[in-house]
Design a protein around this nucleic acid. Sequence first.
DNA 1: CACCGGGCATGACAAATGTCAGGGCCGGGG
DNA 2: CCCCGGCCCTGACATTTGTCATGCCCGGTG
Lengths: 202, 202
Amino acid sequence: MTVRVLLADDEHLIRGALAALLALEDDLVVVAEAATGPEALAMARAHAPDVAVLDLQMPGADGVKVATSLRAELPACKVLIVTSHGRPGHLKRALAAGVRGFVPKTVSAQRLAELIRTVHAGNRYVDPELAADAISAGDSPLTAREAEVLEHAADGAPVAEIAERAALAEGTVRNYLSSAATKLGAENRHAAVRLARERGWV
Amino acid sequence: MTVRVLLADDEHLIRGALAALLALEDDLVVVAEAATGPEALAMARAHAPDVAVLDLQMPGADGVKVATSLRAELPACKVLIVTSHGRPGHLKRALAAGVRGFVPKTVSAQRLAELIRTVHAGNRYVDPELAADAISAGDSPLTAREAEVLEHAADGAPVAEIAERAALAEGTVRNYLSSAATKLGAENRHAAVRLARERGWV
DNA sequence: CACCGGGCATGACAAATGTCAGGGCCGGGG
DNA sequence: CCCCGGCCCTGACATTTGTCATGCCCGGTG
Protein backbone atom coordinates (compact mmCIF):
# COMPACT_ATOMS: atom_id res chain seq x y z
CA MET A 1 0.00 0.00 0.00
CA THR A 2 2.72 2.43 -0.97
CA VAL A 3 1.95 5.85 -2.40
CA ARG A 4 3.68 6.66 -5.68
CA VAL A 5 4.74 10.31 -5.75
CA LEU A 6 5.78 12.71 -8.54
CA LEU A 7 7.95 15.62 -7.38
CA ALA A 8 8.15 18.81 -9.47
CA ASP A 9 10.22 21.84 -8.46
CA ASP A 10 12.69 23.85 -10.49
CA GLU A 11 15.20 24.07 -7.66
CA HIS A 12 17.29 20.93 -7.80
CA LEU A 13 18.60 21.45 -4.27
CA ILE A 14 15.12 21.40 -2.81
CA ARG A 15 13.76 18.68 -5.03
CA GLY A 16 16.63 16.38 -4.20
CA ALA A 17 16.45 17.09 -0.50
CA LEU A 18 12.72 16.50 -0.51
CA ALA A 19 13.06 13.26 -2.39
CA ALA A 20 15.59 12.04 0.14
CA LEU A 21 13.38 12.92 3.08
CA LEU A 22 10.25 11.40 1.62
CA ALA A 23 12.20 8.24 0.88
CA LEU A 24 12.62 7.79 4.62
CA GLU A 25 8.89 7.19 4.92
CA ASP A 26 8.07 3.51 4.47
CA ASP A 27 4.82 4.07 2.65
CA LEU A 28 5.99 6.73 0.19
CA VAL A 29 8.07 6.26 -2.95
CA VAL A 30 9.16 9.00 -5.33
CA VAL A 31 8.74 7.56 -8.82
CA ALA A 32 9.62 10.65 -10.86
CA GLU A 33 11.06 14.16 -10.61
CA ALA A 34 10.66 17.18 -12.88
CA ALA A 35 12.12 20.69 -13.06
CA THR A 36 9.60 22.38 -15.38
CA GLY A 37 5.87 22.40 -16.01
CA PRO A 38 5.93 20.49 -19.30
CA GLU A 39 8.43 18.02 -17.88
CA ALA A 40 6.12 17.38 -14.93
CA LEU A 41 3.29 16.65 -17.35
CA ALA A 42 5.41 14.24 -19.39
CA MET A 43 6.62 12.45 -16.26
CA ALA A 44 3.08 12.12 -14.99
CA ARG A 45 1.95 10.56 -18.26
CA ALA A 46 4.86 8.12 -18.18
CA HIS A 47 4.59 7.05 -14.54
CA ALA A 48 0.95 7.67 -13.57
CA PRO A 49 1.74 8.60 -9.94
CA ASP A 50 -0.84 8.53 -7.14
CA VAL A 51 0.06 12.01 -5.92
CA ALA A 52 1.79 14.90 -7.70
CA VAL A 53 3.60 17.42 -5.51
CA LEU A 54 3.98 20.59 -7.60
CA ASP A 55 5.77 23.86 -6.97
CA LEU A 56 3.56 26.82 -7.86
CA GLN A 57 6.21 28.72 -9.80
CA MET A 58 8.07 26.71 -12.43
CA PRO A 59 9.44 27.58 -15.87
CA GLY A 60 7.15 26.65 -18.76
CA ALA A 61 3.82 26.31 -17.02
CA ASP A 62 2.92 27.04 -13.42
CA GLY A 63 1.56 24.50 -10.96
CA VAL A 64 -2.07 25.43 -11.55
CA LYS A 65 -1.81 24.96 -15.31
CA VAL A 66 -0.15 21.58 -14.84
CA ALA A 67 -2.88 20.63 -12.36
CA THR A 68 -5.55 21.52 -14.92
CA SER A 69 -3.99 19.29 -17.57
CA LEU A 70 -3.48 16.50 -15.07
CA ARG A 71 -7.14 16.68 -14.04
CA ALA A 72 -8.12 15.97 -17.62
CA GLU A 73 -5.57 13.28 -18.42
CA LEU A 74 -5.08 11.49 -15.12
CA PRO A 75 -8.14 12.05 -12.93
CA ALA A 76 -6.89 9.49 -10.42
CA CYS A 77 -3.73 11.50 -9.72
CA LYS A 78 -4.24 13.79 -6.73
CA VAL A 79 -2.42 17.12 -6.82
CA LEU A 80 -0.74 18.80 -3.85
CA ILE A 81 0.72 22.27 -4.42
CA VAL A 82 3.54 23.78 -2.39
CA THR A 83 4.50 27.43 -2.70
CA SER A 84 6.94 29.98 -1.32
CA HIS A 85 4.81 33.09 -1.60
CA GLY A 86 1.14 32.47 -0.93
CA ARG A 87 -1.06 34.66 -3.10
CA PRO A 88 -4.75 34.45 -2.18
CA GLY A 89 -5.96 34.35 -5.79
CA HIS A 90 -3.71 31.42 -6.64
CA LEU A 91 -5.31 29.32 -3.96
CA LYS A 92 -8.74 30.01 -5.40
CA ARG A 93 -7.65 29.15 -8.93
CA ALA A 94 -5.88 26.05 -7.70
CA LEU A 95 -9.01 24.75 -6.00
CA ALA A 96 -11.01 25.49 -9.13
CA ALA A 97 -8.47 23.38 -11.05
CA GLY A 98 -9.21 20.41 -8.80
CA VAL A 99 -6.12 20.62 -6.60
CA ARG A 100 -6.52 18.63 -3.37
CA GLY A 101 -3.95 20.32 -1.19
CA PHE A 102 -2.26 23.73 -0.97
CA VAL A 103 0.49 24.51 1.54
CA PRO A 104 3.37 26.98 1.97
CA LYS A 105 6.96 25.79 1.95
CA THR A 106 7.24 26.77 5.58
CA VAL A 107 5.75 23.41 6.66
CA SER A 108 8.09 20.66 7.86
CA ALA A 109 8.93 17.62 5.78
CA GLN A 110 7.19 15.45 8.36
CA ARG A 111 3.99 17.44 7.88
CA LEU A 112 4.35 17.23 4.10
CA ALA A 113 4.52 13.45 4.28
CA GLU A 114 1.33 13.41 6.33
CA LEU A 115 -0.38 15.66 3.82
CA ILE A 116 0.60 13.42 0.93
CA ARG A 117 -1.19 10.60 2.73
CA THR A 118 -4.14 12.87 3.43
CA VAL A 119 -4.73 13.85 -0.19
CA HIS A 120 -4.04 10.29 -1.34
CA ALA A 121 -6.87 9.16 0.94
CA GLY A 122 -9.12 11.47 -1.02
CA ASN A 123 -9.30 14.29 1.52
CA ARG A 124 -8.52 17.94 0.95
CA TYR A 125 -6.22 20.19 2.92
CA VAL A 126 -5.37 23.87 2.60
CA ASP A 127 -3.11 25.78 4.95
CA PRO A 128 -5.36 27.62 7.45
CA GLU A 129 -3.41 30.85 7.19
CA LEU A 130 -3.54 30.92 3.40
CA ALA A 131 -7.24 30.11 3.55
CA ALA A 132 -7.81 33.04 5.92
CA ASP A 133 -5.91 35.34 3.59
CA ALA A 134 -7.93 34.18 0.63
CA ILE A 135 -11.21 34.74 2.43
CA SER A 136 -10.29 38.16 3.77
CA ALA A 137 -8.94 39.21 0.37
CA GLY A 138 -12.24 38.17 -1.17
CA ASP A 139 -13.01 37.71 -4.81
CA SER A 140 -11.42 39.68 -7.57
CA PRO A 141 -13.48 42.82 -8.17
CA LEU A 142 -12.20 42.98 -11.74
CA THR A 143 -14.35 42.14 -14.75
CA ALA A 144 -13.03 39.80 -17.42
CA ARG A 145 -11.92 42.59 -19.74
CA GLU A 146 -10.32 44.57 -16.96
CA ALA A 147 -8.22 41.59 -15.94
CA GLU A 148 -7.31 40.86 -19.55
CA VAL A 149 -6.17 44.41 -20.21
CA LEU A 150 -4.25 44.53 -16.93
CA GLU A 151 -2.40 41.40 -17.95
CA HIS A 152 -1.36 42.94 -21.23
CA ALA A 153 -0.18 46.02 -19.33
CA ALA A 154 1.94 43.88 -17.04
CA ASP A 155 5.32 44.54 -18.62
CA GLY A 156 4.91 48.29 -18.92
CA ALA A 157 3.76 48.28 -22.54
CA PRO A 158 2.31 51.53 -23.93
CA VAL A 159 -1.45 51.77 -24.33
CA ALA A 160 -1.28 51.61 -28.14
CA GLU A 161 0.32 48.17 -27.97
CA ILE A 162 -2.21 46.87 -25.47
CA ALA A 163 -5.03 48.18 -27.64
CA GLU A 164 -3.68 46.32 -30.64
CA ARG A 165 -3.22 43.04 -28.80
CA ALA A 166 -6.67 43.25 -27.26
CA ALA A 167 -8.29 44.54 -30.47
CA LEU A 168 -9.79 47.54 -28.69
CA ALA A 169 -9.75 51.31 -29.16
CA GLU A 170 -7.10 53.11 -27.12
CA GLY A 171 -9.74 55.03 -25.22
CA THR A 172 -11.39 51.80 -24.16
CA VAL A 173 -8.12 50.38 -22.92
CA ARG A 174 -7.48 53.49 -20.89
CA ASN A 175 -10.92 53.12 -19.41
CA TYR A 176 -10.44 49.56 -18.26
CA LEU A 177 -7.06 50.40 -16.88
CA SER A 178 -8.51 53.35 -15.05
CA SER A 179 -11.45 51.47 -13.57
CA ALA A 180 -9.21 48.59 -12.54
CA ALA A 181 -6.86 51.01 -10.81
CA THR A 182 -9.79 52.63 -9.01
CA LYS A 183 -11.16 49.29 -7.84
CA LEU A 184 -7.77 48.27 -6.51
CA GLY A 185 -7.18 51.64 -4.87
CA ALA A 186 -4.08 52.27 -6.96
CA GLU A 187 -2.68 55.59 -8.10
CA ASN A 188 -2.06 54.44 -11.68
CA ARG A 189 -2.09 51.33 -13.80
CA HIS A 190 1.41 50.24 -12.88
CA ALA A 191 0.66 50.20 -9.17
CA ALA A 192 -2.57 48.41 -10.09
CA VAL A 193 -0.62 45.68 -11.87
CA ARG A 194 1.55 45.21 -8.79
CA LEU A 195 -1.44 44.95 -6.47
CA ALA A 196 -3.34 42.57 -8.73
CA ARG A 197 -0.25 40.37 -8.96
CA GLU A 198 0.19 40.36 -5.19
CA ARG A 199 -3.38 39.21 -4.69
CA GLY A 200 -3.11 36.66 -7.48
CA TRP A 201 -5.86 38.27 -9.55
CA VAL A 202 -3.99 38.38 -12.83
CA MET B 1 37.95 18.07 11.79
CA THR B 2 34.21 18.66 11.45
CA VAL B 3 32.81 21.80 9.88
CA ARG B 4 30.23 23.61 12.02
CA VAL B 5 27.46 25.02 9.80
CA LEU B 6 24.75 27.65 10.29
CA LEU B 7 21.72 27.26 8.01
CA ALA B 8 19.46 30.25 7.28
CA ASP B 9 16.42 30.08 5.00
CA ASP B 10 12.88 31.26 5.58
CA GLU B 11 11.33 28.14 4.09
CA HIS B 12 11.14 25.56 6.81
CA LEU B 13 10.61 22.72 4.34
CA ILE B 14 13.86 23.46 2.56
CA ARG B 15 15.87 24.26 5.64
CA GLY B 16 14.84 21.05 7.32
CA ALA B 17 15.48 18.97 4.24
CA LEU B 18 18.89 20.55 3.79
CA ALA B 19 19.81 20.01 7.41
CA ALA B 20 18.91 16.35 7.09
CA LEU B 21 20.96 15.89 3.93
CA LEU B 22 24.00 17.70 5.27
CA ALA B 23 23.81 15.58 8.41
CA LEU B 24 24.54 12.56 6.24
CA GLU B 25 28.01 13.93 5.58
CA ASP B 26 30.46 12.76 8.24
CA ASP B 27 32.46 15.94 8.35
CA LEU B 28 29.58 18.44 8.47
CA VAL B 29 27.40 19.31 11.44
CA VAL B 30 24.54 21.83 11.44
CA VAL B 31 24.85 23.69 14.73
CA ALA B 32 22.09 26.25 14.20
CA GLU B 33 19.16 27.17 11.95
CA ALA B 34 17.44 30.49 11.34
CA ALA B 35 14.41 31.70 9.39
CA THR B 36 15.11 35.45 9.25
CA GLY B 37 18.07 37.78 8.80
CA PRO B 38 18.24 39.04 12.39
CA GLU B 39 17.75 35.50 13.69
CA ALA B 40 20.66 34.32 11.57
CA LEU B 41 22.84 37.03 13.07
CA ALA B 42 21.84 36.12 16.61
CA MET B 43 22.46 32.43 15.97
CA ALA B 44 25.84 33.18 14.50
CA ARG B 45 26.84 35.20 17.55
CA ALA B 46 25.69 32.41 19.86
CA HIS B 47 27.26 29.47 18.04
CA ALA B 48 30.21 30.94 16.11
CA PRO B 49 29.89 28.53 13.14
CA ASP B 50 32.69 27.87 10.66
CA VAL B 51 30.45 28.39 7.63
CA ALA B 52 27.13 30.25 7.28
CA VAL B 53 24.85 29.11 4.46
CA LEU B 54 22.45 32.00 3.80
CA ASP B 55 19.44 32.37 1.55
CA LEU B 56 19.57 35.63 -0.40
CA GLN B 57 15.97 36.60 0.26
CA MET B 58 14.87 36.43 3.88
CA PRO B 59 12.50 38.55 5.96
CA GLY B 60 14.20 41.24 8.04
CA ALA B 61 17.55 41.54 6.32
CA ASP B 62 18.75 39.89 3.12
CA GLY B 63 21.73 37.58 2.87
CA VAL B 64 24.12 40.30 1.77
CA LYS B 65 23.29 42.51 4.75
CA VAL B 66 23.76 39.60 7.13
CA ALA B 67 27.07 38.78 5.45
CA THR B 68 28.26 42.35 5.96
CA SER B 69 27.49 42.24 9.68
CA LEU B 70 29.05 38.81 9.99
CA ARG B 71 32.20 40.03 8.32
CA ALA B 72 32.62 42.64 11.04
CA GLU B 73 31.68 40.52 14.03
CA LEU B 74 32.94 37.05 13.13
CA PRO B 75 35.68 37.37 10.50
CA ALA B 76 36.50 33.68 10.84
CA CYS B 77 33.02 32.65 9.71
CA LYS B 78 32.93 32.03 5.95
CA VAL B 79 29.70 32.91 4.14
CA LEU B 80 28.12 30.87 1.36
CA ILE B 81 25.02 32.34 -0.30
CA VAL B 82 22.37 30.29 -2.07
CA THR B 83 19.63 31.90 -4.13
CA SER B 84 16.63 31.02 -6.26
CA HIS B 85 16.77 33.89 -8.71
CA GLY B 86 20.28 35.00 -9.56
CA ARG B 87 20.50 38.72 -10.14
CA PRO B 88 23.89 39.84 -11.47
CA GLY B 89 24.05 42.92 -9.25
CA HIS B 90 23.52 40.87 -6.13
CA LEU B 91 26.52 38.73 -6.90
CA LYS B 92 28.67 41.83 -7.20
CA ARG B 93 27.41 43.25 -3.93
CA ALA B 94 27.81 39.90 -2.23
CA LEU B 95 31.46 39.63 -3.24
CA ALA B 96 32.03 43.18 -2.05
CA ALA B 97 30.59 42.12 1.31
CA GLY B 98 33.22 39.41 1.63
CA VAL B 99 31.04 36.45 0.70
CA ARG B 100 33.12 33.36 -0.23
CA GLY B 101 30.61 31.43 -2.28
CA PHE B 102 27.52 32.22 -4.36
CA VAL B 103 25.41 29.49 -5.98
CA PRO B 104 21.87 29.01 -7.29
CA LYS B 105 19.48 26.59 -5.61
CA THR B 106 19.59 24.45 -8.71
CA VAL B 107 22.78 22.73 -7.50
CA SER B 108 22.51 19.31 -5.88
CA ALA B 109 22.88 18.72 -2.17
CA GLN B 110 26.01 16.68 -2.86
CA ARG B 111 27.53 19.66 -4.62
CA LEU B 112 26.50 22.00 -1.82
CA ALA B 113 28.32 19.82 0.70
CA GLU B 114 31.46 20.00 -1.43
CA LEU B 115 31.15 23.76 -1.64
CA ILE B 116 30.82 24.11 2.10
CA ARG B 117 34.16 22.29 2.39
CA THR B 118 35.61 24.48 -0.35
CA VAL B 119 34.78 27.77 1.32
CA HIS B 120 35.76 26.39 4.70
CA ALA B 121 39.18 25.65 3.29
CA GLY B 122 39.45 29.34 2.50
CA ASN B 123 38.74 29.12 -1.22
CA ARG B 124 36.12 31.01 -3.17
CA TYR B 125 33.49 29.68 -5.53
CA VAL B 126 30.84 31.37 -7.64
CA ASP B 127 28.54 29.58 -10.03
CA PRO B 128 30.04 29.93 -13.53
CA GLU B 129 26.72 30.78 -15.13
CA LEU B 130 25.92 33.50 -12.62
CA ALA B 131 29.45 34.84 -13.03
CA ALA B 132 29.01 34.98 -16.80
CA ASP B 133 25.72 36.82 -16.37
CA ALA B 134 27.32 39.30 -14.01
CA ILE B 135 30.18 39.97 -16.39
CA SER B 136 28.02 40.30 -19.48
CA ALA B 137 25.59 42.52 -17.60
CA GLY B 138 28.52 44.69 -16.55
CA ASP B 139 28.41 47.53 -14.08
CA SER B 140 25.38 49.65 -13.54
CA PRO B 141 25.39 52.48 -16.08
CA LEU B 142 23.21 54.58 -13.79
CA THR B 143 24.52 57.60 -11.92
CA ALA B 144 23.82 57.99 -8.23
CA ARG B 145 20.85 60.30 -8.72
CA GLU B 146 19.36 58.17 -11.47
CA ALA B 147 19.41 55.11 -9.25
CA GLU B 148 17.98 57.08 -6.33
CA VAL B 149 15.09 58.43 -8.39
CA LEU B 150 14.42 55.02 -9.92
CA GLU B 151 14.15 53.54 -6.46
CA HIS B 152 11.57 56.12 -5.42
CA ALA B 153 9.64 55.34 -8.61
CA ALA B 154 9.63 51.64 -7.77
CA ASP B 155 6.09 51.36 -6.45
CA GLY B 156 4.46 53.33 -9.24
CA ALA B 157 4.37 56.64 -7.40
CA PRO B 158 3.55 59.76 -9.47
CA VAL B 159 6.40 62.11 -10.37
CA ALA B 160 5.22 64.82 -7.97
CA GLU B 161 5.68 62.47 -5.02
CA ILE B 162 9.10 61.36 -6.17
CA ALA B 163 10.14 64.98 -6.62
CA GLU B 164 9.10 65.79 -3.07
CA ARG B 165 10.88 62.80 -1.53
CA ALA B 166 14.04 63.51 -3.49
CA ALA B 167 13.79 67.30 -2.99
CA LEU B 168 14.04 67.95 -6.72
CA ALA B 169 11.98 69.83 -9.31
CA GLU B 170 9.54 67.65 -11.22
CA GLY B 171 11.28 68.36 -14.49
CA THR B 172 14.53 67.11 -13.05
CA VAL B 173 12.95 63.91 -11.86
CA ARG B 174 11.47 63.31 -15.29
CA ASN B 175 14.90 63.83 -16.75
CA TYR B 176 16.61 61.25 -14.56
CA LEU B 177 13.81 58.81 -15.16
CA SER B 178 14.08 59.37 -18.88
CA SER B 179 17.86 59.01 -19.07
CA ALA B 180 17.75 55.90 -16.90
CA ALA B 181 15.12 54.37 -19.18
CA THR B 182 17.24 55.19 -22.22
CA LYS B 183 20.35 53.65 -20.69
CA LEU B 184 18.44 50.49 -19.83
CA GLY B 185 16.77 50.34 -23.24
CA ALA B 186 13.31 50.56 -21.70
CA GLU B 187 10.15 52.05 -23.20
CA ASN B 188 9.20 53.94 -20.04
CA ARG B 189 10.17 54.31 -16.42
CA HIS B 190 8.11 51.37 -15.21
CA ALA B 191 9.80 48.95 -17.55
CA ALA B 192 13.07 50.56 -16.49
CA VAL B 193 12.33 49.80 -12.85
CA ARG B 194 11.66 46.17 -13.73
CA LEU B 195 14.90 45.84 -15.69
CA ALA B 196 17.00 47.53 -13.02
CA ARG B 197 15.50 45.21 -10.41
CA GLU B 198 16.21 42.15 -12.53
CA ARG B 199 19.84 43.14 -12.84
CA GLY B 200 20.12 44.02 -9.18
CA TRP B 201 20.98 47.64 -9.86
CA VAL B 202 18.46 49.19 -7.54
C1' DC C 1 44.81 79.05 -17.27
C1' DA C 2 41.36 77.81 -20.69
C1' DC C 3 38.95 74.24 -22.31
C1' DC C 4 36.43 70.16 -22.42
C1' DG C 5 33.26 66.32 -20.68
C1' DG C 6 30.10 64.62 -17.43
C1' DG C 7 26.92 64.87 -13.71
C1' DC C 8 23.25 67.77 -11.77
C1' DA C 9 19.38 70.71 -12.36
C1' DT C 10 15.57 73.46 -14.61
C1' DG C 11 11.47 74.98 -17.51
C1' DA C 12 8.97 74.72 -21.93
C1' DC C 13 6.92 71.89 -25.22
C1' DA C 14 5.08 67.53 -27.28
C1' DA C 15 3.24 63.01 -26.48
C1' DA C 16 1.19 59.59 -23.67
C1' DT C 17 -2.02 58.66 -19.99
C1' DG C 18 -6.14 59.12 -17.03
C1' DT C 19 -10.99 60.89 -16.59
C1' DC C 20 -15.45 61.96 -18.05
C1' DA C 21 -20.02 61.79 -20.21
C1' DG C 22 -22.41 59.05 -22.94
C1' DG C 23 -24.34 55.14 -25.97
C1' DG C 24 -25.40 50.09 -27.09
C1' DC C 25 -26.37 45.48 -25.34
C1' DC C 26 -28.22 41.99 -22.29
C1' DG C 27 -30.48 39.66 -18.23
C1' DG C 28 -33.41 40.05 -14.00
C1' DG C 29 -37.32 42.22 -11.44
C1' DG C 30 -41.44 44.75 -10.92
C1' DC D 1 -43.50 44.76 -21.21
C1' DC D 2 -40.47 48.28 -19.49
C1' DC D 3 -37.10 49.72 -16.63
C1' DC D 4 -32.83 49.26 -14.12
C1' DG D 5 -28.14 47.98 -13.41
C1' DG D 6 -23.96 46.10 -14.96
C1' DC D 7 -20.68 45.33 -18.52
C1' DC D 8 -18.61 46.66 -22.77
C1' DC D 9 -17.15 50.25 -25.77
C1' DT D 10 -16.06 54.94 -27.68
C1' DG D 11 -14.27 59.85 -28.45
C1' DA D 12 -13.16 64.37 -26.38
C1' DC D 13 -10.89 66.74 -22.82
C1' DA D 14 -7.64 67.58 -18.78
C1' DT D 15 -3.65 65.90 -16.55
C1' DT D 16 0.57 63.55 -16.24
C1' DT D 17 4.71 62.02 -18.31
C1' DG D 18 8.68 62.04 -21.56
C1' DT D 19 11.93 64.88 -24.44
C1' DC D 20 14.66 68.73 -25.55
C1' DA D 21 17.57 72.88 -25.23
C1' DT D 22 19.87 75.14 -21.91
C1' DG D 23 22.84 76.56 -17.90
C1' DC D 24 25.73 75.70 -13.66
C1' DC D 25 29.50 73.50 -11.24
C1' DC D 26 33.47 70.58 -10.85
C1' DG D 27 37.60 67.67 -11.93
C1' DG D 28 40.84 66.42 -15.37
C1' DT D 29 43.84 67.67 -19.52
C1' DG D 30 46.51 70.10 -22.74
